[in-house]
Design a protein around this nucleic acid. Structure first.
Length: 459
RNA sequence: UCCCCAGUAGCUCAGUUGGCAGAGCGAGUGGCUGUUAACCACUAAGUCCGCGGUUCAAGUCCGUGCUGGGGAGCCA
């Protein structure tokens, strides 16, 4: 008989008679003449309740089933007389696939996130992490659906890049030089390295995406990125996924419109398609989550300039650890105040002083600020960072000179401004930060299957 | 990298003034029961994070290291 996923079984409107399911035992309760087995196959949050009577030929084996064991069940799908479930299976045959011994680490009780992190290979078998990673999968697919519908092309930007580009934080070096030789010579001879020069893991696909936006029109990259920063916080990982759309013939306003539409689409998609899993987070992880997501899809995001943001922060009467003044970058406490206390919605802050933003952002007419935008979200901080790009060759070169950037390695990037340059814009969204926002999970390590952070690369 | 907190049974934790190592849950065994994180009884289970020091005596005090968590910086 063909296996049916438990999700499909539970969603059946009428009993088809006999069904065959396979999964892992979450818990077993023995009665006098039979056992209740809660079986879960990961297809959905809910378990199917199996009734295994003691006249089954293999009941001896059934009695040995422990939490974590694997089994296949054939039986009749019947309406459950008990409370808490619509359907249950009256087993006619139970195939015990494997027995989990008594030292199975997942118990029938709540575990802390810290403990589950130490058994990251088993935690997807829990309700919370099963739900988190089903939502993660669904959201990744929703990103592609969103862009397919909008006529964007999906660009696979390289993960190994030349050393000098991108300029967004510390990079991981990629080399196949023998450490013993390096020690002997006292230096790394990159001319003899694999690529004949320094190479690193990418920190952003943006520059590649710009080249393709100026060719295919609208593109996005969605891929792993790497940062060798020694950041020990609940919002940082060494390996994370980033979504980076890049749009030709687009300005800063179009960029923000797009970002807002994207976030609202993804949240709405989750509410439509991940209801059961999302409910778990609303009930047990973050009581305010439901209200927050509702606000997220229904209310327009606030938009204001950096200059206005500084004014608000100065006048708000709150004393900050880092005093606010024009020219400084906004600190976490400032971002949190704006998003969580002042606007109580996500807020775009635009037009930052050029000194605190990278070279590729487009210079505004005032000659002081650039067409940047950050999206600050309650509870998360910066979810999106983007800008209109500087499309004017002379202005771009002047900026690179101003900050002392060697233009030679960027010859190909500058070429795009020589040949048919047009206004264009884009942004990056940290995928894990988005998942934290949508689930209420407060530590980035808990939305990544096997997280990589400073000093930690188990699994 | 800096600041703060923590590390005791499989898990979550308590441990008084420095004086015999404890509970709940989980697990095992038995019982009961159309049960829902089932219930009742019994049993087993410890490198008190490592190293060094003070002391007649250290889970407890001091130093140091490691690991984990929270915050900051950096950023997505």
């Amino acid at each position: 008989m063909k296996r049916t996923k438990i999700k499909a079984v539970l969603n059946m409107a009428a009993s088809p008679g006999e069904v065959f399911v396979q999964g892992w035992v979450r818990t077993k309760r023995d009665a006098k003449d039979f056992s209740f087995i809660e079986l879960n196959d990961g297809s959905c949050l809910a378990n199917i309740q199996v009734i295994a009577a003691n006249d089954l030929a293999e009941y001896r084996q059934v009695e040995k089933l422990t939490t974590g064991s694997a089994a296949g069940v054939t039986g009749t799908l019947v309406a459950s007389p008990g409370k808490g479930q619509k359907w249950e299976i009256q087993a006619t045959a139970v195939d015990v696939i494997s027995i989990a011994p008594e030292n199975y680490p997942l118990q029938k009780k709540r575990h802390t996130d810290e403990f589950l992190r130490s058994i990251a290979h088993l935690r997807p078998r829990t309700n919370k992490y099963g739900a988190a990673f089903r939502i993660r999968s669904r959201m990744a697919q929703a990103i592609h659906a969103f862009y397919l519908d909008k006529g964007f092309y999906y660009l696979h930007s390289p993960l190994i890049t030349g050393s000098d580009c991108e300029g967004a934080g510390e990079m991981f070096r990629v080399t196949d030089l023998d450490p013993a030789d390096v020690q002997k010579q006292g230096r790394m001879d990159f001319s003899r390295d694999f690529f004949g020069q320094e190479a690193n893991l990418t920190v952003s696909g943006q520059l590649s995406a710009e080249m393709f936006a100026l060719s295919l029109g609208d593109v996005y990259t969605f891929s792993p990125t790497f940062r060798a920063e020694n950041s020990n916080t609940r919002r940082h990982a060494a390996e994370f996924w980033m979504l980076e759309p890049e749009m030709a013939f687009c300005d800063l306003d179009g960029n923000m419109d797009h970002a807002e539409e994207l976030v609202k689409y993804l949240v709405g998609h989750a509410m439509d398609h991940c209801r059961e899993d999302l409910d778990l987070f609303m009930r047990f992880v973050d009581k305010d989550l439901g209200q927050r997501l509702e606000t997220l899809v229904s209310k327009p995001f606030a938009r204001l300039s950096y200059t206005d943001a500084v004014e608000i922060l100065k006048k708000c009467g709150k004393t900050f650890e880092y005093p606010v003044e024009y020219g400084i970058d906004l600190q976490s406490e400032h971002e949190r105040f704006l998003a969580e206390e002042h606007f109580k919605t996500p807020v775009f802050v635009t037009d930052y002083p050029r000194q605190i933003k990278p070279f590729y952002m487009r210079m505004n007419d005032d000659g002081q600020t650039v067409a940047a935008m950050d999206l600050l979200v309650p509870g998360i901080g910066e979810l999106i960072g983007g800008s209109q790009r500087e499309e004017r060759l002379s202005v771009l070169e002047a900026r690179m000179d101003e900050i002392g950037l060697d233009k030679d390695p960027y010859w190909w990037y500058l070429d795009s401004r020589r040949f048919g340059t047009v206004p264009h814009a884009g942004f990056g969204m940290g995928f894990e930060r988005f998942l934290m926002m949508i689930t209420g999970i407060s530590n980035i390590r808990d939305v990544i299957a096997f997280p990589r952070t400073p000093g930690s690369i188990d699994f």
